[in-house]
Design a binder for these strands. Structure first.
Length: 114
DNA sequence: CGAGTGACCGCAA
DNA sequence: ATTGCGGCCACTC
């Protein structure tokens, strides 16, 4: 409906902005919810040139590892996540299985269904 | 307007 | 198990 310009970027930003504190989402997830499961790279691109007010720090890769290119490097990224309440491993890895969050209504199979 | 790149993911050997 | 390569879409210069 209505305008659909760059709905991808708007969608990703909307999802990231909805990520609750202490939770993390994967790029592939955001990409899939945005409309393209193969556009995970674009999500990263938007993250770098998107709105700096969005909690991109809560966005990690499928491995649960922190991404590069973040202002301050993984060091700053790790500290920010820990400040949010996310436990980051010494290797800059987070428990995706524990902190992975899905938007309400779009969850294909929550962890409870495991 | 055209080309290149990217904070990724999945599969193949 | 590990390593290497390709692919898709959007954004920037």
């Amino acid at each position: 409906m209505e305008s659909v310009d760059t709905n991808f970027r708007q969608r990703v930003e909307a999802l990231v902005a909805q990520i609750p504190q202490g939770r993390v989402m994967t790029y592939g997830q955001l990409a899939a919810l945005a409309g393209s499961a193969y556009a995970a790279r674009i999500v990263g691109g938007i993250a770098h040139f998107g709105d700096p007010d969005l909690p991109w720090q809560r966005v990690v890769n499928k491995q649960g590892g922190l991404a590069s290119g973040y202002p301050g490097g993984r060091d700053g990224h790790k500290q920010v996540l820990e400040a949010e309440g996310v436990s980051v491993s010494d290797d800059y890895y987070v428990s995706v299985s524990e902190l992975l969050w899905w938007p309400p209504g779009d969850e294909p199979a929550q962890q409870g269904l495991l």
